[in-house]
Write a protein that binds this DNA or RNA. Structure first.
Lengths: 132, 132
DNA sequence: CGGATATTCAACCTCATGGTTGAACATAAC
DNA sequence: GTTATGTTCAACCATGAGGTTGAATATCCG
C-alpha cells in the first residue's frame, strides 16, 4: 500500500472539477463514447479528451477501444478509498450536530427555568479578522 | 442548487493534496497554530500559510486570531457534502463486488460439480455487502 | 481507392498552484 | 522604547491544468 497518498491525490483531484463530475454522472447511467461524453459541454473534443485522461489516470473510468470509437465505462471502485478517507471525519460533524442539539435543549430548559433568574448574559467575543 | 458545484470543487480541491490532508489530520486531534501546522513539513511558513488559506476557503478550517498567533480548528462539516456526492457512486462498487462474488461462486459450483457429485450447495453465504 | 467520422497529438496560451525569498506587520517580552 | 516571535504579504519561479487550434491517426463506408 505504498503510495496510498498518490491515489487519494489523483482521485480527489479528478473529482474536484465540475465537468469531470458531470462526466462521471453520465457514465453512471451507461457507458459513453468520448464524443458522447464531450457533447453536453461547450469545449472541444481535445479538451474533453484531456478530462477523460484525468479520470482514467485516477482509475475512475476504463476505456474499451471499439473500432474508431472509444467506449468509456465507470469504475467507481477507487472512489471507495476517498469515501473512507472522508468518513474518518464524519464524527466531527455529527458530533458537532449532537453538541448543537444538546446546547439547544439546554437552552430551552434554561429559558423555561430562568423566568426568575436575571443574570444569563453570555456575550459574543470579537470575531476573527477576515483574511486577505 | 446554485453553486453547490463550487463548493464541491473547493472541498475536493482542498483535500486533493497530501500536505493539506495531513494538516487536517493534525487538526482532528486538536486546534493548532499556523506554526504548529507547518512544523511537520519541510516547507516555509509562507507555503504553509497558503495551504491553510486553501483549507479556509473550502470552509474546512476556522481561524481565531489570538494575539500574534492564529489558532486554526477543524470544521469538518463541509466535507459532508463531499461524502454525500461520493456516496451516490457507492452502489457501483458494491454492485460490482456482488457480481464478482456471484461469478466466483458460480465458477466454484461448476468446478466442484464437474469434479465430484452434483451437490453444489452450501458453500459460502451470499454475504451481500450492503453498506448503509 | 477516397471521403467521412472518431479520437488523439503537438504546440501554444493563460492562469492557478506550490514553492521560494525577503520585507512588512502585529504583538509579546524585556 | 528595543527586540524577539508569529504570521502574512509581495514578488518571483517552475510546473501543471484547462483551454484552444490545426494536423495526424485510425477506422468505417461507399
Amino acid at each position: 500500500m505504498v503510495e496510498h497518498n498518490e491515489q487519494l491525490d489523483s482521485i480527489f483531484g479528478a473529482i474536484a472539477d465540475t465537468t469531470r463530475r458531470a462526466m462521471l454522472l453520465s457514465l453512471a447511467q451507461r457507458p459513453h463514447s468520448v464524443g458522447e461524453l464531450a457533447a453536453p459541454f461547450d469545449i472541444t473534443l481535445a479538451a474533453a479528451s484531456k478530462h477523460i485522461k484525468v479520470l482514467e489516470r485516477a482509475g475512475l473510468i476504463e476505456r474499451e477501444v471499439q473500432g474508431r470509437t472509444h467506449l468509456c465505462r465507470l469504475n467507481a471502485a477507487p472512489m471507495h478509498a476517498g469515501l473512507e478517507w472522508i468518513r474518518h471525519y464524519e464524527r466531527f460533524w455529527t458530533q458537532r450536530l449532537d453538541v448543537l442539539e444538546a446546547l439547544l435543549k439546554a437552552d430551552l430548559a434554561k429559558e423555561s427555568a430562568a423566568a426568575t433568574d436575571p443574570v444569563a448574559g453570555g456575550h459574543n467575543k470579537p470575531k476573527s479578522k477576515r483574511p486577505r
